[in-house]
Nucleic acid binder design. Structure first.
Lengths: 362, 362
DNA sequence: CGCTTACTCGTAAGCGCTTACAGGGAAACT
DNA sequence: AGTTTCCCTGTAAGCGCTTACGAGTAAGCG
């Protein structure tokens, strides 16, 4: 320590330059690999940087070269106050965010996360705040209306997840159609179940709408009897799913032979609620999920579901956003493939190609 | 739109000032609630801001007033390539991060998240990057050595989670001692199990060490026989826990009556592995977790565990960091209380089926 | 040995915003 | 009406960094 630094006076590039006996420009060049500094110069700068533990200020950098190297991710969280059950519905979102983060690292970007309460009307205020701190934004489902997105998109690059592309924004989603069709075909075709129900997610979620639509179409096509509607709204949550089952049974309603849940969380709640009533899955009722969150394979019975490439969706969202930030174009609607994961909850034998499942009861 | 903006030319405060017919200083004052602008001035500025959809640049702001209003959170993720099972071990971390984020919002801060691969030696490089972009940092378990933390702490405020406080950094953790003691007392005392095992987490995790230590002490104190050591390392992951059970059974080892897992993930893997071998939980072997992640109550059997106030830990970490950033002092080691959640996996009776909540808590 | 060519480095001009300071009016006082 | 006050507003100086530009030096060539 040639020169003890007052830890508060913020270390700047000037301090480094002085210690190294060069100009601030040289320090900057060495730090950014620009130009061709003499080996000796580089050496002295590096030594000074090390000695001072200098870390350049990202704001100044951003201000100067117009790049923050930060992307924002905005999503909805369950409730205002954190309500236990709602939290789980974030499993999927967290998975995606992780994918975004990992991809961002490869470009030395960082990720700014921001959630909006489900009943918070200040969504756009919050998004604006994030916009000011980042170079581009990834918006999860149900954050902004199409016009809101279009408007925002002319200020900053936007990528939506499980939404719809607009003139100015890109969307990354998964192939709901194939997934749901595979599910229905398996249930009605392979297992021969004739009576299916769709336990839906948020009514305003594009993913949910697509799944519901295809469910109906596919089930109808194979001549299965279906059950949906207001009594079958689970809002993507475990408690929502459990609630639907509980009230159905409470009023003596008949259960379908198979329940197709809008996502894994919902299925989790459904299985739980059925077990509580002494009903066996899949013997009495088959249940399927959608997403394939990591715990799905550890449930009892393990969950038959549609695997979405969760982390990859996040990574893709980042990559697309990155290329937008870098001024390149690209497709505006990216649909990632899904895959049917057969496990026990649909009635398949406890042997699956992916994870050999646990023996039932044993 | 009085004046169409070239969407690339970045909108600045000057554009707003010109449109509103005032100076940039006035715009800034209105936007930040400083000074006492005349109502008419405020009005004109606000109109201009709205008309242009102006969003101030956070970098410039940060550079100018020395506050980025961003805190960084750094943690370890499972593997380099995303390895399926490892992912789940992030449930707990995600919960904490959510708490940080929610608390941050209340102060209009945002959260920059950054993960470090488990075998990535560039941890400090990565942390430095985050440091440059934030006003303070929250470090999860096992990110930096004590000296590394001390060194970093003299450059930027640091809060560690489940670590140890240093002269310059604060730590936020939970009461491992009480938690583990409650668990052992319940298992050995209430259920009368005489043979217990501790399936440990990462050897270098302070939380794990504390739990192991108290486990031994408490079990010994009540005269129970214990089993620990290198054969009982699960590394906090489901696959790790499953592995331990699998190899134990493979080599014909005897199972203890109860397995105390270092965290819920591990318990999940253990239950899964046991079920696979036809062993019943809790009849043959009781299993407990630690953390009470949301899915714990949906497992079969539902998991007896120690509830850590996960989100609150994150929120507390933020608040402490915030007060450091604001130049205030405060305690340097914060220990949050935990709670024993009795559910089925320890051998306690299932709760009544009428409970409205899915939580079968004790 | 003198001049051109090629490098490296330092000077200085911003990036967009906040804020100390001072100027200008209007209101309040004598 | 002439001052004094007070309030509001504009001017301008940075915040820490990047980078165009040109100065200075060393190497290359005839």
């Amino acid at each position: 320590m040639t020169e003890a630094k007052r830890s508060k006076g913020t270390l700047t590039i000037y301090d480094v330059a002085r210690l190294a006996g060069v100009s601030i420009a040289s320090v900057s060049r060495v730090l950014n690999g620009q130009g061709t500094p003499r080996p000796e110069t580089r050496e002295r700068v590096m030594r000074a940087v090390g000695e001072l533990s200098f870390v350049p200020d990202a704001s100044a950098r951003a201000l100067s070269n117009g790049l923050k190297e930060v992307v924002g991710v905005v999503f909805r969280r369950g409730g205002e106050a954190t309500f236990e059950d709602e939290d789980e519905s974030l499993l999927f979102i967290d998975g995606i965010n992780r994918g975004v983060e990992v991809a961002a690292q490869r470009r030395s970007y960082d990720v700014l996360v921001s959630s909006v309460g489900v009943h918070d009307s200040h969504a756009s205020t919050r998004i604006a705040g994030v916009a000011g701190k980042s170079d581009g934004i990834i918006l999860h489902d149900r954050m902004l209306s199409a016009v809101g997105i279009a408007r925002l998109a002319e200020m900053i690059p936007i990528v939506t997840l499980a939404g719809s592309p607009t003139r100015a924004s890109v969307n990354v989603g998964c192939d709901n159609d194939s997934g749901m069709r595979a599910l229905v075909n398996h249930l009605a075709g392979d297992h021969g179940y004739r009576h299916l129900a769709y336990l839906s997610g948020h009514a305003d979620s594009p993913d949910n709408r697509a799944r519901a639509r295809v469910f109906e179409a596919a089930a109808t096509a194979v001549g299965a009897q279906i059950q949906t509607g207001p009594d079958w709204q689970g809002n993507y949550s475990a408690s929502g799913g459990a609630q639907v089952i509980a009230s159905l049974l409470a009023r003596g309603g008949a259960l379908p032979r198979a329940i197709v849940c809008a996502n894994d969380q919902t299925a989790l709640g459904v299985i739980h609620a059925l077990a509580r009533q002494g009903l066996r899955v899949p013997d009495d009722v088959a249940v399927t999920g959608f997403d394939d969150v990591p715990v799905a394979r550890h449930l009892h019975p393990s969950l038959t579901t549609i695997r979405q490439p969760i982390e990859q969706m996040g990574a893709t969202a980042f990559e697309v956003l990155y290329s937008r930030i870098s001024g390149q174009g690209g497709e505006s609607n990216i649909v990632l493939p899904v895959r049917l994961m057969l496990r026990e909850s649909c009635g398949c034998a406890p042997a699956s190609p992916v994870t050999p499942s646990l023996g039932v009861g044993g």
